[in-house]
Structure formats: structure tokens, C-alpha cells
Design a protein around this nucleic acid. Structure first.
Length: 272
DNA sequence: TGCATTTGACCTGA
DNA sequence: TCAGGTCAAATGCA
């Protein structure tokens, strides 16, 4: 074996993962009912996309998004560009909603060159407590229904469930989960297409699970952000509408587990 | 009245 | 000089 470097090991394993995912897709197609096979295919495609991106990122040598460095007296100096709140990007998410279970306060908005949508800047609502978490939200160019959210810094105010900056969100208004209103398929497909459901923060997973335990109530308080967060209150409470839809409309089941809800639990829940 | 949001100005790095 | 990120006064709302 020529797996001498960590990079080559990862590349090899990701390639094996791709092959296994493809094989799994074939098995699902052959042995499952149409509905299950369809979901399985979508899931397989998602896994393959993730593998592709990891491989591309690694083999590409991280050529994109690489911060320029300057040479001074023959010594490589770090960029002098001001860092965002002193924190590196911790993760970038594409999502159908800007709500993520945390309470954010908007502190800025900027029109970005080459983009038809403005960019929004948020910091944790508990930044006064010393929490340095911030995020940057921008509506996707290709898919206006999706938001590209970049997270910076950690929730030092306590990111765990029940902590100050992490609130359990209220359910969606009934209209949003009414199968007869907007069409379940459309609603579901919109979020099916979310690119790479990100590995969720532990706190987010916990929040969602806690939501599942609580009965939905139309009288729950909270503000709702529409498809565009530009005009709504930005002190947001909420989780992905997918979660709400699945719990409120269909209940917790295989479908939600496989398709989105328990993305990080796939090894367990994906097996039928 | 207090708090959150808006938005133009300012700051900084490229 | 430009663009992105942040600040802070003005404004709105409960």
C-alpha cells in the first residue's frame, strides 16, 4: 500500500466510501419499494457529492479561499487583513432557513459586489456576556430559497442545550406544515435539495430532539422568518422548517431520520 | 421607555 | 481606491 501520508489515506478512504455508497444505491434500487429506493438514491447521491467535495478539497491543495500571505525580509508574514471578530470560519452551511436554534442579533447588512442579495451580519444575542460567536448570512445566488451561512467563533456563553444562547424553538405556524396548503412534496423537495446537510452542532441536534419531545402548540410564542430574512426580526428563534414539517406533519419516522433530521445518525438510522 | 433593528459612515486590508 | 466588515446614531415597536 502506498498510503504513506494522511492525505493519501483520506483520499483512499473517501474513494472507498464512494464505491460503497454507489453499491448501496444499487442494492436499494434492486431490493426496495419505489418510495424507499427513491429516498435511498437521493441519500446515496448526497453521500457521493460529499465525498467528491472532500476529495476535491484535499487533492486541490486547498487552492481556493487561501489567504494571501506576504513576504517580509524573506519571512512569510500573516495577512494583515482584519480578522472577523478574531475568529476563523468554523463552518459554512447551505440551508433552507436562517434559523439554527441560536438567538442572533443583526449588527450589519451589506450589498455585496456581484451578488443580487445583500449580506447580513449577526452576532450572538448574548455577546454582552462575552460570547464571540458570529455568523454571516447570504441568500444563495443559484438557489434563492437557500441561504449560505458562515459561522465564526464559538458560543462561549454556553452552547449546550438549555444554555443562554441556545433556545428551543417554537413550531412553525400551521400553514407551513399544512399538507393541503403548499403541497407536501414541494415543501419537502425544497429541503431535500439543500446541499449537504451539514454535520450539526451537538447543541443543534439536541435542540431538535428536544423539540420532538414537546407537543406542538399553535400558541407557542416566537417570531418566524420567511424565505427572506431581510425584513423580519433578526432575533431569531427557530429550527429548520424541515424538522418542523416532519415532526408536525408526519411524525418522527424513518423518513425524517434518513432525509435530514438525524444526518449525523445516518449509520444507525439509514439502515432499514 | 427600553430594547432591537436599520442604515449610513467609518475602518481596514487588498 | 475599492470592497467587505463593523460601529453607532436614528428609528421603530411593544
Amino acid at each position: 500500500m502506498a498510503l504513506s501520508t494522511p492525505t493519501s489515506v483520506v483520499l483512499e478512504l473517501m474513494t472507498m466510501g464512494q464505491q460503497s455508497a454507489a453499491h448501496l444505491g444499487e442494492l436499494l434500487m434492486a431490493a426496495s419499494p419505489p418510495m424507499v429506493a427513491e429516498r435511498g438514491q437521493a441519500l446515496t447521491a448526497e453521500i457521493l457529492r460529499c465525498c467528491d467535495r472532500v476529495i476535491a478539497a484535499i487533492s486541490g491543495g486547498a487552492t481556493s479561499r487561501k489567504r494571501k500571505a506576504t513576504m517580509e525580509h524573506g519571512v512569510l508574514m500573516p495577512s494583515k487583513r482584519r480578522s472577523r471578530s478574531g475568529a476563523e470560519v468554523r463552518r459554512e452551511v447551505r440551508s433552507g432557513t436562517t434559523a439554527d436554534g441560536f438567538v442572533w442579533r443583526k449588527y450589519g447588512q451589506k450589498d455585496i459586489n456581484g451578488s443580487t442579495h445583500p449580506r447580513f451580519y449577526y452576532r450572538c444575542a448574548y455577546s454582552a456576556n462575552g460570547c464571540g460567536a458570529t455568523r454571516r448570512v447570504q441568500q444563495s445566488q443559484e438557489d434563492p430559497a437557500a441561504f449560505v451561512i458562515a459561522y465564526y467563533g464559538d458560543h462561549t456563553c454556553g452552547a449546550g442545550v438549555g444554555d443562554a444562547c441556545h433556545r428551543v424553538a417554537p413550531p412553525l405556524p400551521p400553514a407551513a406544515i399544512d399538507p393541503n396548503a403548499g403541497g407536501v412534496a414541494d415543501f419537502f423537495d425544497q429541503y431535500q435539495n439543500v446541499e449537504s446537510p451539514q454535520p450539526l452542532l451537538a447543541a443543534e441536534q439536541s435542540c431538535w430532539r428536544r423539540q420532538g419531545e414537546a407537543p406542538c402548540s399553535e400558541t407557542s410564542r416566537g417570531r418566524w422568518s420567511s424565505s427572506s430574512s431581510t425584513s423580519s426580526s433578526e432575533a431569531e428563534l427557530g429550527t429548520s422548517p424541515v424538522m418542523e414539517f416532519l415532526e408536525g406533519g408526519l411524525g418522527l419516522g424513518w423518513e425524517c431520520a434518513v432525509n435530514y433530521l438525524c444526518f449525523t445518525d445516518l449509520p444507525q438510522t439509514g439502515v432499514i
